[in-house]
Every structure is written in C-alpha cells, then in structure tokens.
Design a binder for these strands. Structure first.
Lengths: 197, 197
DNA sequence: AAACATCGCTAACATTCGTTAGTATATTAT
DNA sequence: ATAATATACTAACGAATGTTAGCGATGTTT
C-alpha cells in the first residue's frame, strides 16, 4: 500500500482532514459522523483510526492551522513601517483571501472551535483573544494619528472579522460577483467605515 | 398543577423554548441534549414531551419567531417616506437591538437554522433570501440617488448582517462598553462605510 | 526471502440520543 | 364530589455515535 503519499501528493491523513473540513462546514462538527467522513474518503469508519487519533484531533488540526496562519500574518504586518490604515487594509485583504481560498477550513475554525476540548479549547480562545487585541492596538494607533475616526477599537475589530465571515454567503450564492470584485467591495466598505474625513 | 401560566407569566412551553435558546446557543443544537434541557427546566426529559412535539419543533419556533420580527420590521421601514440611508440606519439599529436584547434567540436562529428539516428548512432559507434582496433593493435606491457609493448591494448586505452578528463577542466579553455606545459605534462604522463623500 | 510496517476490513463495544408507553398525581371545570 | 385535563414520573425502545480489537493483505526494508 502507498506508504507516504497518494497520487495527489497528499498523505492519507491530509485527505481525511480536508474532507472533514468540508463535512464539518456542511453539517457542523457534531452532526458530521465518522461514518459520513469515512464514506467521503471512500473507506470504512474504523479505517480512519489508522491515520487519526480521534474526531476531535481533526478539529484541533483545522483550528490551529488556520489560527497559525493568521498569527503569522499579523507578526509580519506589525513589523512593517507603514500607517495604521495600511496595516489594517493588509490584514483585511489577508482575511478576505483566506476566506475565499481556504473557505472550508477557515469557516470551520471560526464556527466549530467551541467543540474543542481542553487544553486545546482554552489555548485557542487565548490565541483568539490576543489576536483581536493586537488588531485593536493597530486601530488605536490609527485613531491617535487621526487617520481613523474616534471609535471603540474592540468594536471595530469585531465588526471587521465578522463581516468577513459573511463571505460564506458569497460562496453559497449562485450568481456571484468575482473574487476580486468581492475583495474590493469589502475593502471599500470596511475601510471606508473607519477613516476620518 | 398550574394550568396555563407559571408565576413568571410564562407558559411551561415558553419556559422550555426560552431555556432551549440558551442551551442551543451555548452548545449548539446538535450538542445540546433533551436531557440537558430537562435539567435546565428542572424536570425529567420525557416530561418535556407534554409540552413540545420534538426537539426540532423548538428550533422551528425560535427561528421563525425571530424571522417574523425582522420581516415585520422591513415591511414597516419600506413603507416609510424617507431616504435610503435613513431606512438602512433604521434596519441596522433594529438588528443591533434585537441582537443585544434577544441575544439567545437571534443567535440561535442565525447559526442553527441548518438543522431545521424540510419543509421548514426551505421555507426559512426562502424568507432569508427574500429579506436580503429587499435590504439590497433599498441600498440600490441609495446608490441611484448618489447617497451611497457605488458598491455591490448584495455584498453590502452580507457585510452589515454578519457584522452585527459580532455582537455575540460583545455579550461574552467581560469589559463591555454600554449597549448604547455599542450601537452608536456600529452605526458609525457601518453607515460610514456606505455613504458617498 | 524474511521481517516489518502500513492500512483496510469486519465485528463489536459501551454510550448517548430522541422519543414513546404507561402510570400517577395535581389542578380546574361541571 | 366527580369528571376531565394537564403534567410529572419511571422505564424502556431502537437507532446512531465514537472508538477498539483483531485479522489479513499489501507494500517496504534488509
């Protein structure tokens, strides 16, 4: 049997996690059964356990791989020598593109993390809280610079992040605008809502 | 036994549905069991069925009571003789206040409607689609009037509605700004993101 | 070729789930 | 008081769940 990689250059485990992302998005973590997943992979349910430790482990992997990408990005953006508005726009564009191109994973990470179990749960919540604080800090710099209007930074963050999760509806919509148009529209509205004028 | 009302002026069924809303929000529809609900109500699981037909019926009631409130509101707003921006602001303020004051129900209706079963599921999806189209139509009037900048109306709707669902985080936050401040901040950012200038 | 690791299968497990049946008790209406 | 209604209980059901044990076949390494 294939030892490391299948024809698609993915390990069996990666295939399982990827199919799980789709399934978890469609039905929710709790409602998606291991037998559903097995069928999607083309295998019996028990066979999944040759590759993964548990159903929850799949959720861990999804949630933390997404979280890590965002943390890495905010590291990068914070280090740049640009204006607060520039940084925010870069973060927003990253969020938008992640939501467009890694829809299933990002969506699942966003909506199903509650089903993580400790210590992963607290860990995830912490990372999330810290990420939002760092995002808010950038906004506060923008407010101090009078680039951004006087608003509650935490509220602004919460609006931005949740607004982007609306891309879910775009994915499910039948008559879509293009991804580029979507990105520009979102940036126009979201950044436009922040700037002083 | 109490025939119609308990001491709180609520029927037993209303108590059950209300406790269910809290539970469904906390754990998700699938993960919240009838035994959990029974415990919250202070009764055995089987006893719930003297008041409700099924677990799904509770979800129906929650989802459609919320949906009906929004449909009623948009009826009202559409009939007014005001500008598009005025109408949008009124709708947004209604959404915000619903999310603040009927948190559990609105949140559950928003996130758990997928677990409805047909014909209720299709029905709900239809209402939702129609509501968004009517909202988008108002935005398009604003664009035609040059009150609102040239954006994709559907995208704008999706941003507005999802942004407001972020109030969830406000509810869970420990150091909250007041509800009034939250409302004004959200309106400032969201309406500010739409208007031409 | 022998030893070993990989990986899919069948069968089964203990739990938990939503729900029903049947019964007893308390309240309201006549 | 008596009948009717509402509502709580215990017990149990069949179905679905995540997961484990054990086996056999296939591939890799020596």
């Amino acid at each position: 049997m294939a030892r490391i990689k299948t024809e698609n250059n993915l390990t069996r485990k990666e295939v399982i996690v990827s199919k799980a992302a789709t399934l978890f998005r469609e039905k929710g973590f709790k409602a998606a059964s291991m037998r559903d997943l097995a069928e999607a992979v083309g295998v019996e349910a028990a066979s999944l356990y040759n590759h993964i430790k548990s159903k929850t482990e799949i959720l861990h992997e999804l949630c933390f791989s997404v979280a890590n990408r965002f943390l890495h990005k905010i590291d990068e953006v914070e280090a740049e020598q640009t204006s607060a508005i520039d940084k925010i726009e870069k973060l927003l564009r990253f969020h938008i593109n992640e939501m467009i191109h890694h829809y299933e994973e990002v969506y699942v990470s966003d909506r199903e993390w509650k089903h993580l179990s400790d210590p992963y749960l607290s860990n995830f919540q912490n990372q999330r809280r810290i990420y939002r604080k760092r995002f808010a800090a950038i906004i506060e710099v923008g407010i101090a610079d009078h680039q951004i209007k006087k608003i509650d930074a935490a509220t602004a963050v919460l609006i931005m992040l949740h607004a982007i999760s609306g891309i879910e509806s775009w994915h499910r919509s039948t008559q879509k605008i293009t991804a580029e148009e979507l990105e520009e529209n979102m940036i126009s509205i979201l950044v436009g809502g922040l700037v002083n004028r």
